[in-house]
Simulated assay, not measured.
Amino acid sequence: MLEDGEEIPLLGGDVTDGLVRVGGTVRRPPGERDELVRDVLLHLEHVGFEGAPRFLGVDSAGRQALTYIEGEVAGRPRPAWIADEERMVSVARLLRAYNDAVEPFGIPANAPAPIEPPGLPELDDPPELVGHQDVTPENVVFRAGRAYALIDFDLARPVSRTREVVNLMLWWAPLGPDEDLDPELRGLDRPHRCRLLADAYNLPEPDRHRLMNLTIALNTRAWHTMNHRAKTLGGGWARMWSEGVGDKITHRQTWLESNANAITTALLT
């Protein structure tokens, strides 16, 4: 039986409102992938993967209850260590460990389709596992300077491993023009950091060849998807859109097209 208690708001997420801590638990309001998230977390517990919260049940308010994971999270303003390469590499290793742990779970036949606008072109990128797909600095818990756990599985969905690495690089290389990045992440050697991430994840060479084409295609889709979610779901999606996320995606597209060859060269040499 889950106990009630003082609710402490947890801040920093972009789209999940009403997230609170109650004692040693986190309570999350219902989301679009509740059953999938529950089943993935139960699988991770079954296989002994420690780098994710444990699913504890549903409380009297209908919220998912998860274990609260103590540690250090890079909220805003970003801490000085956000650009540290050793921490970045540890995130890639954690993501690889999660992907290896979740792959035996398979891809459920009833996995919910993402909320996307009609008419988006299909990607030649078959899913291999249920990916996290939101490895933002806010969603990685560090201990002793090393990535310890992934949190916030709300965007989990069937994807390829390469698509997981695209999401990883988006936030941790990171990908995009300096003027749209946090000050601590400007002026970095992004091709070099992408190579470090790919090596730490142990991404195979064929996937390195296609990674930037996939990144550009996903970024194109992201603009339409974010716009659609802002209009249909409102909430945090609408807030992000009003704050200019669409413009940032457009700027990133130009940057990706200009830097794709340099990043691919770094990945392969």
Rank of each mutant, 00 (worst) to 15 (best):
G234V: 00
T162W: 05
A149P: 03
V141Y: 00
P206K: 02
W171D: 11
W171A: 11
T250L: 14
R146G: 02
N167D: 13
G145D: 13
P174G: 14
R146H: 13
R186G: 03
L185E: 15
V166P: 00
P206D: 07
V159Y: 05
V141W: 07
A144L: 14
H209A: 10
T162Q: 10
R157A: 07
V159D: 07
E179T: 09
G235W: 08
E184H: 15
E164K: 09
D207G: 01
E205H: 09
W171M: 13
R161C: 09
V141L: 03
G244L: 03
K248F: 07
P191S: 13
L170A: 07
P206C: 09
R161I: 03
I151D: 02
W241A: 15
R163L: 11
S242M: 10
A144D: 15
W237F: 15
R163N: 09
E138V: 11
R143G: 12
E138N: 13
R221K: 02
G234L: 04
P174H: 14
E138F: 12
R186L: 06
H209E: 11
R161K: 11
R190A: 01
A222Q: 06
A156S: 13
L196Y: 08
V165K: 12
H192W: 03
P204W: 09
W172E: 01
L185M: 15
S242I: 03
P137K: 02
D207Q: 15
P191M: 15
P204Q: 07
H192F: 14
A217W: 06
L150F: 14
V159L: 08
D247I: 09
D199I: 12
W241T: 14
